[in-house]
């Protein structure tokens, strides 16, 4: 991965330079946006609900035993908004959408479709990369907001129904409101925006450098997902450090 870091940064820079073309490519951006939403929404919903539920189940009884029941909503709320929703959703999207991007662009590369674009003076970065990165950069933060809300709901439901907690919905959310600020949700959304750029650039780059036949495409897909996840985890630490200041 690290030997390609220069190429990945260069692709990111070229995509930034292509931003004035964004309006021209709006149809493709919307197509990609809806594809990401359609492919992920149900999965995001299920995953977020159970993440919220399990965090509540893991932390709630311990806090209740120590007479800290009033902190359960806040702990679950902060954990989901600042860390779990952005990271878990980014990993989910890397697996589901990043892999699709690498496979589609990789297959276009292997079957000379990208060469065909070049012979028509159509820049593959404008035509293929820019719409995908813009779409994921908008879609992932939106999915994260949705994930946070569903995660909180899942956490609240378990806190209410589990016999070791029995914290009513109203109390859970009152406590959550006391502790979680809008800034915390914004931090998570900002992180997810950065993760979206990472997934988009890494996956498109991997697609563009694909060589070989179907095996090459498979290798690219695996690399795109693994490299995206590694970079997400590294950048999660860096961004968290930066945002804690």
């Amino acid at each position: 991965m690290f030997e390609n870091i220069g190429e990945i940064i260069l692709l990111f820079w070229r995509t930034l330079l292509a931003l004035p073309q964004a309006w021209r490519q709006r149809d493709k951006v919307f197509d990609q946006f809806f594809e990401i939403g359609n492919a992920s929404l149900l999965m995001v919903c299920v995953l977020s609900f159970f993440i919220g539920a399990v965090i509540s189940l893991q932390t709630g009884p311990i806090l209740v035993e120590r007479s800290l029941a009033s902190a359960v909503g806040g702990v679950v709320g902060i954990a989901i908004a600042k860390e779990l929703a952005p990271v878990m959703m980014a990993i989910l999207i890397a697996g589901r959408i990043g892999s699709a991007m690498a496979a589609e662009i990789g297959s276009m590369r292997v079957y000379q479709e990208i060469d065909a674009l070049r012979t028509m003076n159509i820049n593959p970065i404008h035509y293929l990369v820019l719409p995908r990165i813009l779409a994921i950069a908008v879609a992932l933060p939106m999915l994260v907001v949705f994930s946070v809300l569903v995660g909180w709901f899942g956490g609240a439901m378990v806190a209410d129904m589990n016999h070791r907690m029995e914290i009513p919905f109203r109390v859970f959310f009152a406590n959550l409101r006391d502790i979680v600020e809008l800034k915390d949700v914004a931090n998570g959304v900002f992180k997810s925006f950065c993760f979206a750029i990472i997934i988009g650039v890494v996956s498109c780059h991997q697609g563009l450098v694909t060589i070989g036949g179907p095996r090459g495409i498979g290798r690219s897909v695996t690399k795109a997902v693994v490299n995206s996840i590694v970079l997400i985890v590294i950048f999660d630490y860096i961004l968290t450090r930066f945002l804690l200041k």
């Binding site: 276009m108 000379q112 479709e113 060469d115 012979t119 159509i122």
Partner: peptide
């Protein structure tokens, strides 16, 4: 213009969209 050995039509577009792509 180059006519590729495989044709290199974009598989995600219809034939008409491919021809009019330029």
């Amino acid at each position: 213009a180059l006519v590729f050995q495989s044709g290199a039509l974009l598989n995600s577009l219809t034939v008409g969209e491919n021809v009019g792509l330029y």
